[in-house]
Design a protein around this nucleic acid. Structure first.
Lengths: 233, 233
DNA sequence: AATTTTATCAATCCAAAGATTTAGGACATT
DNA sequence: AATGTCCTAAATCTTTGGATTGATAAAATT
């Protein structure tokens, strides 16, 4: 298969198995339009090579003993380059796939994959897409849905948050941002005692004893989808 | 396209657009091996129909005004039946796709999709797989990776949690479970004043003013990966 | 028209939380 | 031997938080 021509795709291969490394290199070199700019058996060296040569694609074996390939992916992503990493693995383990994709891998291919399919994956990913063979994609989604199952189970049980009035929701929202009574009063332009009343009502409805528990309940029960808090002054 | 024969696949169609509903029904009825057991324009009615007829597949339009199709998916999943829901939408919006899959949809297809492809999707999903057309799959993964980008960025920036001693981590951990001083003291077998000392040190290190902010900081910065709190007594 | 819910506020009162200082003993490091 | 960190603890003091009661007015419901 041949890409529409522009310039050669620059590829870096990382695999601790030197045997397999040679095989893949040869395989890719047979195709026109691909340039293997380097091969290495070490993830650490790979990082340096990437910084130097800025390849378009990195084929990264993630089952390496020395340094974890997943960790390497994470480090590469932190560099914020245009380099796209394809995870290469002998195993179609759902957790591995999930973690690799989570860390920013643009694809995940098995070592047993046919060469034509590998080339196809490289092309797709080089073109900016994300590529997962359908079998692996299925595994990924099963894992993905399992990992969200618990969350929605929580939502399944009665959600006390639904008893809050809209004003109480506003107050709780400010609580989940780390505000105290004074802060909430100022932000809502109401008196501190009114805030106290609301907060007390919130406690009753959520069946908790204090603001921390209220905030935890809110976050754990999908209140306004977890937000980030800047460490307050 | 024809499934290998076993029994007819029982399908329920849900779409607030009666026009489109008829179209899809006809389309599916033309194929052998598929039995449209019901059609409805209301998500609420759909839930009841599912309880009654236990279809194999539900094609659920998720762009309905009255009741949200996504919410319907969630409710169907809560029933824990064998019924598989396929999200049907006019939009290939990444957020919609993500939310549908998160809620347990086994597939997501566009209304503009060719009929052969729809049948294929139904077959795949009926067979227990998950089906996302590759274009939508790409969108999903881009969204997925974006949503994890911030998390790793957070990890990249200085994490004040790293300054905590192991004892302080224990104390913070108990704080994130909604404990007060007394509770923490009892659980760690130390005096309440000692707990206060630890907590104060934690505040200093995390640069926060009170326990709620400390807890929020902890949760937002990957402290012991968010845990669930049962509403305390 | 009558009732309930919601939002507002005040005044207490007590308990809890938070700030600060001081200090002893264990342990590791220099 | 001296220094530093960590865990422990007490004492004191101020502030904040939380519970309770009662009250007014607008708004929504019945």
């Amino acid at each position: 298969m041949m890409r529409e021509f522009k310039r050669k795709l620059r590829i870096l291969l990382v695999d601790d198995n030197a045997e397999h490394l040679r095989g893949v290199k040869e395989l890719i070199s047979l195709e026109a339009g691909y340039d293997v700019v380097g091969t290495t058996t070490s993830a650490n060296i790979a990082i340096n090579l990437i910084k130097k040569y800025r390849p378009d694609i990195v084929l990264m074996d993630i089952n390496m003993p020395e340094k974890d390939g997943l960790q390497a992916i994470q480090e590469i992503e932190k560099l914020e380059l245009d380099t796209k990493v394809i995870a290469l693995s002998g195993y179609d383990d759902a957790d591995l796939i999930f973690r690799a994709m989570k860390l920013g891998a643009k694809g995940y291919v098995l070592k047993t994959m046919a060469s034509a399919q590998l080339i196809y994956a490289i092309d797709e990913i080089a073109a900016g897409k994300i590529y997962l063979p359908s079998a692996l994609s299925s595994r990924f989604f099963e894992y993905f849905q399992r990992s969200f199952k618990n969350e929605s189970d929580t939502a399944a049980q009665e959600n006390l948050l639904s008893y809050l009035t809209s004003r109480e929701e506003e107050v709780l929202d400010l609580l989940t941002q780390g505000n105290n009574y004074k802060g909430i009063a100022a932000k809502l332009f109401i008196s501190e005692t009114t805030v106290k009343t609301h907060v007390n009502n919130i406690f009753q409805k959520l069946q908790v004893n204090d603001r921390t528990q209220a905030v935890l309940y809110a976050l754990n029960n999908g209140f306004a989808g977890r937000r980030r808090v800047k460490a307050a002054v």
